[in-house]
Each structure stands twice: as C-alpha cells, then as structure tokens.
Simulated scan of single mutants.
Amino acid sequence: MSDGPAILLTNDDGIDAPGIATLRTELTALGDVTVVAPDANQSGVGRTRSHTARIREHPWGYRLSGTPADCVAYGLRGLETDFDVVVSGVNNGPNAGNYVVGRSGTVGAGIEAAFLGTPALAISAYHSTDFFLSPPEEYDFARPARIAARLVSRALESGVYDDVDLLNVNAPVDAPSPPVILTEPYHDYGQHVEPADPETLDEGEIDADGGELAADEQIVHLHDRTWPGVVGWENPFPPTDEHRERYPVGTDRRAMVDASVSVSPLAVTHASPDSAALAEVVETIDVE
C-alpha cells in the first residue's frame, strides 16, 4: 500500500480511451489508484444515474455498463475502500463554459462524488490550434495528466477541499509551459430551433418505435449554441483580438484562447440564494 491518497479514477470516454490510461500512470506515482470506468463512451450524459449496471473486473479495477456518475456511485458505495479523492478524465476535448460544464459526463462524475462527500477533480484536454482531439490516439495526454496529478496533490495537502467541492480543469496538450489560471465557467449559451424535413431524417429520428408522423405532428431540430459563432468543427477559441474581447480575463474560455490551464472551483450543493422578494411571496400565499 502507498502512503499517498486513495484515488478513485473514472472518465466518460470509456475505460479503453487513451486519456484515462495516461492519467492512471501519473496518479499511481501519487497514491493508490482504483479505476471504475464506463464500458463505452458516455460523453455528454452529465450526472445521469442508472438503476442497474453490469460490473466486470479489469486489470486496473472495474469496467461498468453505465454512466460516469454510476461508476463513482459504485466506487464510493460499492467498494470497501475509503477514497480520499475522485479524479475524472483525461477527457478528450474541453469542458468550458457554464452550460457545457453542466452537461459533461466528466464533470458529472465529480458532481456525484461531491454529493457523496468526496472531493473531486475533473480534467479535460484541448489543443490550442486543433481544439478537438480527433482521433484522440494521435495526441499526447501526458501534460494534462501531470497537471491533474499535481493539482490533486497540492489541493489535498493545502486544504482546498475544505471550501471547494470540485475542481474543473482544462489543459492544453500542445503548449510547452502553459500558465495556470484561476477561472470561473463563462456564462454563455443559446438554443436554435428550426423545423426539420422528415424526408431527410432517419426512421429512428422520427420515432423511436419506427412510427409515422401524425397529421398534427412535426419534427424540429434543437441546436445547442454552446460555441458561439462556430461553423462546423472549427476552433471556437482561436487566439484573436475578437475572442479576447468576447471572453473576459478570469473565465475558463478566455484561458483557452490564451492556451492556458483553466482551474475553476465549483460548489455543487445548489445553495439557495437569499431573496427578500421570494420571502414576501411565501409569507403572503393564501392556501384557502
């Protein structure tokens, strides 16, 4: 047994993804690492939970037929180890911006950990020019993995988790000596809705059961505007004056424009804001 922390490692790209393998190597130098990760890619599921999951042993720990949050739930409540921290990643692609963070399976694992009383760190990787790491096998996840291991170690030693539930980190794979910036998720989201032509859709997109549209039904496309101004798969955060003006210093997206490491401390308790107006409404509600 190591003298270091007991670490539960998971991800949302699946247990066979290159990012988690690289991160495991770095974390084993820090403490005892147990992997509980999804069988297959679970990107974009947030902290969705399942009622049942199939568990199989793996040389690193366990592979699970469920979501990242399922993996964390099983690791923290289904195993006998008392874990000191949960680490999720390295994710193939960044999780930056308030809306993206909320739907990320990588971050969702950390949120599940925090609700179960265990501190967590979610680490995601991006390329300052290519942005999306595709195919991931052609990129080196070593730098984000090293950064994550160092942050975990320092955060545990310094008492960071006395005040913070989860650290969400985005690190470049290509910048040789990127600065590390304290950030907050940028609040930027839109939704575009437009009618869809049923003739251009697959049968499964029209109806999960293969049924036909009724006369009073229609299909609509719902497009998340998570990367404003982006067409296709281009880099949404190029190092331009336009993007530096759009994203203020101190936000995770500005850090990515500057090819930096973004470290955002998050609280996941859904704390209620004080509202004098709401207090007055509650006091005056007539239930008769």
Score class of each variant (00 low, 15 high):
Val160Gln: 03
Glu57Ser: 15
Glu205Val: 06
Thr226Pro: 11
Asp70Val: 02
Ala113Thr: 06
Asp163Thr: 10
Pro136Lys: 03
Ser158Gln: 10
Thr129Cys: 09
Tyr126Arg: 03
Val33Leu: 06
Pro248Arg: 00
Gly229Pro: 02
Thr34Glu: 08
Asp32Tyr: 02
Ala53Glu: 03
Ala271Trp: 04
His270Phe: 14
Arg49Asp: 08
Ile123Leu: 09
Val101Leu: 08
Val33Thr: 04
Ala171Leu: 13
Gly61Trp: 01
Gly31Trp: 00
Gly190Trp: 01
Asp252Ile: 02
Leu8Ile: 05
Asp197Asn: 10
Gln218Ala: 15
Gly19Ser: 09
Arg103Asn: 15
Gly75Trp: 00
Thr67Leu: 05
Asp258Ala: 13
Tyr62Asn: 08
Val268Asp: 06
Thr81Met: 10
His51Thr: 15
Pro135Tyr: 01
Trp227Leu: 13
Ser43Asp: 10
Ala175Cys: 12
Ile123Tyr: 02
Glu288Ala: 15
Asp224Arg: 02
Gly204Glu: 15
Ile111Met: 13
Leu133Cys: 05
Asp258Trp: 01
Ile285Ser: 06
Ser272Lys: 14
Asp13Gln: 15
Leu167Val: 04
Asn98Val: 14
Gly117His: 07
His187Glu: 14
Arg225Pro: 11
Asn170Tyr: 02
Pro68Ile: 04
Glu137Leu: 10
Asp188Phe: 01
Pro236Gln: 00
Asp188Pro: 06
Leu64Asn: 04
Thr106His: 01
Asn168Leu: 11
Asn95His: 14
Asp207Gln: 08
Tyr126Thr: 06
Ser153Gly: 14
Leu213Pro: 11
Ala277Gly: 14
Thr48Gln: 10
Gly110Met: 04
Val152Asp: 05
Val169Thr: 07
Asp197Leu: 08
Asp209Glu: 14
Thr200Tyr: 03
Leu8His: 03
Ala40Asn: 12
Leu156Tyr: 01
Pro265Tyr: 00
Asp12Val: 02
Glu288Asn: 14
Asp241Ser: 11
Asn41Thr: 13
Ala259Thr: 07
Pro198Asn: 04
Pro38Trp: 00
Val101Pro: 09
Leu201Cys: 06
Ala142Gly: 13
Asp140Arg: 00
Gly229Met: 05
Ser275Ile: 11
Ser128Pro: 06
Gln191Tyr: 12
Gly66Phe: 03
Ala271Gly: 12
Ala6Met: 07
Val33Ala: 04
Val257Thr: 02
Val35Asn: 06
Gly66Ser: 05
Val160Tyr: 00
Tyr62Pro: 10
Thr48Tyr: 07
Val257Gln: 02
Gly31Thr: 00
Ala259His: 08
Thr52Leu: 12
Arg49Tyr: 02
Pro5Cys: 04
Glu112Ser: 13
Pro38Arg: 05
Pro94Thr: 01
Ala259Ser: 14
Val87Pro: 07
Leu278Trp: 13
Ala145Thr: 07
Val268Arg: 07
Ala175Phe: 04
Ile206Ala: 08
His127Gln: 09
Val173Asn: 04
Leu266Glu: 05
Asp165Phe: 01
Ala6His: 08
Phe115Arg: 15
Asp82Ser: 13
Leu167Asn: 03
Glu234Cys: 14
Asn168His: 06
Ala155Asn: 03
Asn235Ala: 07
Leu30Cys: 08
Arg146Trp: 03
Arg49Ile: 09
Trp233Ile: 15
Pro172Val: 04
Val87Lys: 03
Ala125His: 02
Asp207Pro: 12
Ala277Leu: 13
Asn11Thr: 07
Ser134Asp: 14
Val173Gly: 08
Gln42Ala: 12
Gly97Ser: 10
Ser124Leu: 05
Ser134Pro: 08
Asn92Arg: 10
Leu156Thr: 02
Glu57Ala: 15
